[in-house]
Design a protein around this nucleic acid. Sequence first.
DNA 1: AGTTATACCCGGACGC
DNA 2: TGCGTCCGGGTATAAC
Length: 269
Amino acid sequence: MPEWPEMEHYRQELNKRIQNRTISGITVNRPKSLNVPEEEFRAAVLGAVVERVDRRAKQLVFVLSGERYLLLHLMLGGMMVLGTEADKPDRTTQIELHFGETALYFIGLRLGYLHLYGKQGLEAELASLGPEPFDADLTAARFADMLKTGKGNLKTCLTDQHWLAGIGNCYSDEICFASGLLPSRRPAALDEHEAARLYTSMRSVLTEALRAGGYMEMPLYDGDERTGGFNELCRVYDRGDEPCVRCGNPIVFQTLSSRKCFFCGNCQT
DNA sequence: AGTTATACCCGGACGC
DNA sequence: TGCGTCCGGGTATAAC
């Protein structure tokens, strides 16, 4: 569901709108979304200032004053809406963070969560994640090295958060399509040109998707025209049987490593 | 060692 | 309108 482009988009938008704002109220309708008792959460978060919003992999980190951190993972179906009471979604909110008149509403949190950590706890939570796609240290050469030791198939690697952080089911398929490689390919068997193409495609697809506001269509705030723009730009994801934009052959939908997988069986090799 | 199965979770979509 | 049923899918962990 929400992956690197969506979460990076949300990070940027939230920094524009709630950075340096004080959390003036908290509503917890689903205590299970928290990792500490509600009263402890409330005591630590109420009155804190959102110094900034960071992101790691598919998770947002609300950096609060007092070295407190809220780690948000939307998982499946989790969404956010930022707005006033009038903009509040007509469905159950699991958590609400209020900033005066404005509130950040979290909806659809089932497996998703908003966890409270100190500095060390946060670092421990994020320690096992793989490199960020745009990490300066993740050069084409290093990416090629990673592929040499990649296990299973390409899609499995791309979606493994410990191998590479932030890519999920949608963008792994989009990246494979853009690079002309089948998701079922053995990573170690890619030649240097294919590895280079995959690296370039990874960054270009994510860049394009971020610019378009990701593929999740729920607007983040009233008047938001950007969020979800990539939905119509997806070349293969959720487009089973539709004609390939490159060659016209129908997009294939099949299960790979027990995950939904879309690709063109003609122009991806 | 790599692949597959399962539990987690529950709102909402769907069917009658 | 109302009630019952079932699905989704990232992640951790267990099982194969």
